[in-house]
């Protein structure tokens, strides 16, 4: 197991100074962001134990210093094509309502400030991508557009509820 043990541990909890701060990451060529207040740490990709009967985007569980946490592949969650993990692949550990979940992303980019006024609501037109419903807003930073994600929806969208209703 070639686990990256060096973990970036961020200040947990909601902090006023965190407002408007986003952790951005790459999936393919596109940059996405999640609110930093939900992020507890970033770790390198590690051995994921797969489990039966899970939707394909739920990769399984990992051992985070003795804690067992589930891992979601954001790529698959968005309905994109699967891609092999490499040394740049990261797991962003987010925590909402005491639920810890790891998000597998292609690579982590940076932490950036995006003021409220630079964030536009998501486009009303629903295109082919089913990922649209996870969008919280579009952040404009210089010439780039960051797709800011609604972490809550990303983790707890109805699809999951349906899943637990079936099982």
């Amino acid at each position: 197991m070639e686990a990256v043990d060096e973990a970036v541990v961020l200040e947990p909890g909601v902090n006023a100074a965190n407002e408007g701060q986003f952790l951005t990451f790459m999936i393919g060529e596109q940059q996405y962001g999640v609110e930093i207040k939900y992020v507890t740490e970033i770790i390198g990709i590690q051995n994921i134990t797969s489990l039966p009967d899970l939707p394909h985007f739920m990769k399984g569980i990992i051992n985070l210093r003795g804690k067992v946490i589930p891992v979601v592949d954001v790529r698959l969650r968005f309905g994109m094509e699967e891609r092999d993990y490499d040394e740049r692949t990261c797991i962003i550990v987010v925590s909402i309502n005491d639920t810890n979940v790891g998000l597998v992303v292609d690579t982590v980019a940076e932490v950036m400030n995006i003021p409220e006024e630079s964030i536009e609501p998501p486009p009303k037109v629903n295109s082919k991508a089913n990922g649209n419903r996870f969008i919280y807003g579009l952040g404009k930073v210089q010439d780039n557009v960051q797709i800011l994600l609604d972490t809550q929806k990303l983790l707890f969208d109805e699809e999951l509820e349906q899943l637990s209703a079936i099982t």
Partner: peptide
């Protein structure tokens, strides 16, 4: 197992 995953068939824990 993390509650987030719901019930998993045939696995009681880890």
């Amino acid at each position: 197992l993390p509650e987030y995953l719901g019930n998993i068939k045939g696995v009681s824990g880890c």
